[in-house]
Computed example of a mutant assay.
Amino acid sequence: MKLWGIDLGGTKIEGVILDSETKEVLYRERIPTEGAKGYPHVLNQVQKLVNILQDTSGLSPEKIGIGTPGSTDPSSGLLKNCNSVHLNGQPVHADLQKILGIPVNMANDANCFALAETQMGCVPDTAPDAQVVFGVIMGSGVGGGLVVNGQIINGANGIGGEWGHNFLHESGGPCYCGKTGCVETVIAGPHLERYYYEQCGKKLGLADIIQNRSSDPVAEQTYNRLIQYYGQAISTIINMIDPDVIVIGGGVGNIDALYTEGLESVKRHIFNTECHTKILKPKLGDSAGVFGAAYL
């Protein structure tokens, strides 16, 4: 069986055809999104990419999975919470299904990340019997996706896994979502950089802050802030869902200390004497979105 997936991103649209048995990538293409040209143009770009894949492969999809930068509201069918603002409030699912003329399954990029790592990433390599997997995105923002028995859990409001907009600490300040002190405002990369700047008046990227912590007291303070609140935030996932595996994606997830000192911080906050949840680095990198879309 051939699995077709499209990753609809802010700057690029990527498409893939996978062999479901071997998990081999048969065909893969990407084109620019060109979102500045408007919503109808983006829909046409998706159709253009599907046509390219058809012409290249000689195959035609019976159905297709599409990953988006936001979530579809179950009651209205409109896309929401999307940083590609031209997609917000649009019936993306219905319009793409009409344009492509085949059934379309859609999920947000964090869910696609979690599904890809569950099906063909770090989970089968390290925890092949895992039933519950939570995928974490920690980068410019904080998001998440939940997979149970190989299926994405979207939820009644279409926000399953959105741990980044739970309250963590008031010092995070206002969040774009309208609340204050969200997980995202405390441990997302730009907010850690902002915290460092507020303490010392210097602008420094997160990688440099982490690297300089042995010689820079404010960098050490910022690092300790990350470790402390990362442990608290991850512990809420474990306390509520108790997943077999948590996969940490995104740029902040590349910090090695999250899997050592960060894990110890998690252990201090969970409602148990030990932590049996495996916290893993992802295997698929930026390919996870399009692979997860195919597995929809």
Rank of each mutant, 00 (worst) to 15 (best):
residue 219 A to I: 04
residue 115 L to V: 13
residue 256 D to H: 10
residue 34 E to N: 08
residue 183 V to S: 05
residue 281 K to W: 06
residue 155 G to H: 13
residue 225 R to Y: 08
residue 221 Q to L: 14
residue 265 S to I: 00
residue 14 E to P: 00
residue 91 P to A: 15
residue 169 H to E: 14
residue 91 P to H: 14
residue 250 G to A: 07
residue 97 Q to Y: 01
residue 288 A to H: 05
residue 212 N to D: 14
residue 262 G to C: 10
residue 7 D to S: 02
residue 226 L to F: 12
residue 39 Y to S: 02
residue 75 S to W: 03
residue 127 A to Q: 14
residue 142 V to M: 12
residue 283 K to A: 15
residue 80 K to R: 15
residue 95 D to W: 03
residue 191 H to G: 00
residue 192 L to M: 15
residue 281 K to M: 09
residue 170 E to V: 15
residue 192 L to A: 05
residue 214 S to A: 14
residue 17 I to Y: 11
residue 204 L to D: 04
residue 103 P to E: 13
residue 248 I to R: 00
residue 58 G to M: 07
residue 20 S to R: 13
residue 15 G to K: 03
residue 147 V to G: 00
residue 128 P to C: 11
residue 151 Q to E: 15
residue 210 I to V: 15
residue 136 V to D: 02
residue 223 Y to V: 01
residue 238 I to A: 01
residue 97 Q to T: 15
residue 84 S to D: 02
residue 92 V to S: 04
residue 148 V to F: 11
residue 106 M to S: 02
residue 86 H to Y: 14
residue 15 G to Y: 12
residue 178 G to I: 00
residue 173 G to H: 06
residue 58 G to W: 12
residue 93 H to V: 11
residue 282 P to L: 10
residue 34 E to P: 00
residue 216 D to P: 06
residue 3 L to N: 11
residue 154 N to F: 07
residue 26 L to F: 10
residue 220 E to F: 09
residue 60 S to Y: 11
residue 72 T to I: 15
residue 260 T to Y: 11
residue 243 P to F: 01
residue 190 P to S: 05
residue 240 M to W: 04
residue 61 P to D: 08
residue 148 V to S: 06
residue 29 E to I: 05
residue 213 R to S: 08
residue 14 E to G: 08
residue 12 K to Q: 12
residue 212 N to F: 04
residue 291 F to Y: 15
residue 238 I to L: 05
residue 111 N to G: 00
residue 179 K to G: 06
residue 83 N to F: 12
residue 292 G to A: 06
